[in-house]
Design a protein around this nucleic acid. Structure first.
Lengths: 197, 197, 197, 197
DNA sequence: GATGAATGAGGCTTCATTCAT
DNA sequence: GATGAATGAAGCCTCATTCAT
């Protein structure tokens, strides 16, 4: 069927665009990237972007949505492979590391992005939070970590991670912050919430 | 003196502009605010902005610098009035609260702003960090708080605060995050780092 | 080939713009012409100009360069068709006449234009001067014209021509100065430098 | 009388402005000079310029008029001190030399200036032409110079002089063209029109 | 469907001119 | 009269979006 060949090609182009946008957004920032930058990065013409995404906002939303699904999947995988809180945190960072640049931009720009961005961010955090809380609760019940509000425990972790991500220039100008500081952050966080001294 | 009447008026306009910019930046974002928004907010004509600030970047730099000085002053005051770490954290949040919206935008946008922004941010954090570390060290030596890296202690605090600030919509959509969550954050943080359970 | 249809159309627009700019520059002056004047004269939108010429300076440079090439070609043709100095002068004026308005503006504004303008002007004059000198030298050697510095002979001729061009309002307000005064100028110049009385 | 003290001061300021404008116009070009440049050069405030000259055009006109009067005076003096054509040409160049920069700008910009500029230019040239023609006629009658149209003789001279003035960068980048090339120009011109070889 | 030239709204900046002091 | 801050019209340039090919 001709139809389906075309369809396949179209889908391929769409994927190229989403992937290119993901990279460019991670490099230049989401709102700072121009539509033509993305076209160029995807190796297609400027106009083609608009064939697939009616407006800039649509493209941004699609990239974010895509990313949300990927993160959701990773978080889901996280569940089965992790037992201890430490494992969960490790898996969490690992999940971020795979999209570090884009994730960081998303953290930074959420507020000035279309609502979908905020919603995606929240849904990602909710899923992550669910797993972290579960593991934390278990260890808290076991008396390994201090009793404290789950929400605050989670927000402290997220805040710490985001702080390092968004200040990469201070902590790891050359390469991935997660790679450079990840295990240190986990150690520190575990130490802080641990009931031992 | 004629001189000084005119000078005073000019200074007033400059102040009006800085103050309007400070507000508008806090509302719309620093780079998203247009020069004409600021003119309008200050109640002067578009051209007047350029009488006082040759370029947009100059204005941004001036507002940030202004803010940096104000924060520096507050941090300095913090020193004499605070003994315990809890006091210092309280003073820190109090200092932020007075410029909450702008501070939050600065946290968000630092990376896409002229270098002065980053430098100001760093210098503010350095000063704050100095006082926090001093108090924390004392209490750590006294065995009241767990032994841990000063840098990580500070970054955890800053990360936590910034996380709440930059997610105001989640934590306090109506009013100041600091007002709403400040003492909770301090309590939580103190509890976390405390050597007691 | 699709390629070439689009390419041809783009080139046509570029030509329309260059040609419109050439005319508008001749009428209003090179720096006095606004980008929007040229867009209007070319029958395209304001933004289109910037698709083809990134900045005003680029456009000016392109128009001048274009003109330089055209003049160079004419000067080259001049060579083969002219024997006597009189012929060369005639050809020179003829070459100018085809772009009289623009050439005149260029003469007037060279100093306030980007360096390319000056360079183009100089290169045009050099080529012309070469041919004039050659013919003049021959006739000087033959004793037909007075012995004199070639440079001064050339500068006198150019000065005379430019003076008439730049004072068209005095000499030929209605139409081309070259048409109106050209042969008179040649006669006069030849008479002046002739060794006969 | 208070009145007349004020009047004197006002006149002084006006003179300062005219003089400053004359210099600045000579340096930056007449239309390229900003009103504030002139205020600064005159050592008065920006607003003061408008107290004396309602519009930019008025100022330009006044400076040109002033210059015209000065040139007229010099031309008049030229009359009594000069006998031969060579003397007149020398006096002519001398008159220009005293205002070389401004005169050159005027030559270049006349067309884009208010009509007064053109009229002044014409009136200056008329006066000069009168004296040159008179002397030339005498020598032509005496058979010293070739018979030729007075207008063309004059225009050749003016064209030559203007060509050197407006191409100072080629002929005398460092200092006055008249000083550097003046006598050469006179010699050449006299040689050209002389009936001798 | 892909292309990329054309479009035009929107933003920054300059500078002659005005006017309150 | 002198001052200089304020004004706003006008010009350059960017970039998301449209549309003919």
């Amino acid at each position: 069927m001709k139809r389906s060949i075309r369809q396949i090609q179209k889908d391929e182009t769409r994927e190229k665009l989403l992937s290119a946008a993901h990279i460019v957004f991670g490099q230049k920032g989401i709102m700072a990237a121009r539509m033509s930058d993305i076209a160029e990065a995807a190796g297609v013409s400027h106009g083609t972007v608009f064939v697939h995404f009616k407006t800039q906002e649509t493209l941004v939303a699609a990239v974010i949505d895509d990313f949300g699904i990927r993160m959701g999947q990773r978080t889901h995988d996280m569940a089965r492979n992790s037992g201890s809180l430490r494992d969960v945190l490790k898996a969490h960072l690992e999940g971020i590391r795979e999209d570090e640049a884009f994730y960081t931009q998303l953290v930074i720009e959420t507020r000035s992005l279309p609502p979908i961005a905020r919603e995606t961010m929240i849904s990602i955090q909710s899923a992550v939070s669910f797993h972290i809380n579960q593991a934390a609760q278990r260890e808290m019940d076991a008396g390994v970590i201090k009793p404290m509000s789950m929400a605050l425990l989670f927000n402290t972790w997220i805040g710490l991670v985001h702080y390092y991500l968004t200040n990469r220039d201070l902590f790891s100008p050359e390469k991935s912050v997660i790679e450079t500081c990840g295990s240190m952050l986990i150690d520190h966080f575990m130490h802080m919430i641990s009931s031992a001294n």
